[in-house]
Amino acid sequence: MRALRIIVCIKQVPHPDEAKVDPATGLVIREGVPMVLNPNDYFTIEEALRLKEAMGGEVVAITMGPPTAEAVLREAISLGVDDGVLLCHRAFAGADTLATAYALARGIESLGGYDLILTGSRSTDGETGQVGPQIAELLGIPHLTELIRPIEVEGDHLLAWHQTDYGQELLQMPLPALLTVAKGMNEPRLPSLRGKMRAKKQTIPIWGPQEIKAEPDRIGLAGSPTRMLETALPERKSGSKMLEGSMAHQVDALLDHLADMLPGKAGGRR
């Protein structure tokens, strides 16, 4: 059995229920919105810790973000992750998925060797699911998306079941590899008291472009091929008819309105 060095890529996101847009200006309101660990990442961390416990080795968490993103690294450490590193520098700002993947790939290479990289299958804010496969391509390693069962490592290979559009598929791939972890594939643990203590004390290195030897034109806005041109508030058609009265009455009225759409006895009750 080999010990594994596992890198988990995590992300701090606005609380999914609290993100707001100013209806007058169409701008995203960031003030006062609590920032949390991307919900998908709990499953990623759990799978990494399970593997480490089964095979030995260590788990290192990496994230890119503002200084406050350190909080999600400390949370990961409280759950049992050994170390965390934060990519944080003005030059990283404005990155699209490619520039983000490039910075994370450089950061991962700067951590030394690795056997396995795990990411969430998507974040609740960007929701593109692109960064994982892009990191893999930039590092020149294979990947799979939406891991749904625990990984089995056999020598220099791993076996993994993942969700596809057509069912579930078992893949064999060589290490190192990158896998994106589907939400709900395991039961994430809670932080331990000891973990919380350690998370408080742990030193978290903060790396900029120099520490990861990043090419300046491949990070941040400069390294982003895509450009956001404009934002608009979604148009909503109106003209709704609100039904009234008791629920029984409303359901009766609804079925009358829908008489010609429903099968058989449901419509046209009168």
């Binding site: 934002t231 608009a232 508030l233």
Partner: peptide, 12 residues
């Protein structure tokens, strides 16, 4: 984007 609160136009 932003959980559907905004419509964003992006180009490359």
């Amino acid at each position: 984007t932003f959980g559907g609160r905004l419509l964003t136009t992006i180009a490359c």
